[in-house]
Amino acid sequence: MAEALAALGQNYFFYYALILFMVGFYTTLSHSNILKKIIGINIMETSIFLFFVALGYVEGGQAPIMGRGAEGGPYMNPLPSALILTGIVVSVSITAFALALMVKLYHFYGTLDADEIVMLRGERQ
């Protein structure tokens, strides 16, 4: 038990990322408001970025730049941060595209409620 708690304490950010991931996933699936769905997707993706960046963190590590005193000492893994930069770009594009479609949807249906949109679409068919 004590061991499990110690492991939990050491890796608390993993669990935190998982909880955040589920919060985002649940928000997207359960809310009918389109804007909240987009926010949910963002929360979910942020949790993964947190997880990925936390992987590369080393307690007391230096930035891995040559000639800045990092030689010899422990340094942080730069790869996850570099990858997450790409991940953030992807996430921003998804958000921008979703927001653009949201504007279009409001223009066509006059509402941002996904359930109402499904109803309106059924009437017109």
Binding site: T28, I48, F51, L55, I94, A98, R124
Partner: peptide
């Protein structure tokens, strides 16, 4: 109106799919 609604639904589902893929890659890494 139909295409934009279908496109948005597609986008939300597919964004929900890309999260797990990135998480899986993080775990493997």
């Amino acid at each position: 109106r139909l295409a934009v609604e279908a496109g948005f639904k597609y986008l939300v589902m597919i964004a929900l799919g890309s999260g797990p893929i990135l998480f899986g890659i993080a775990l493997i890494y």
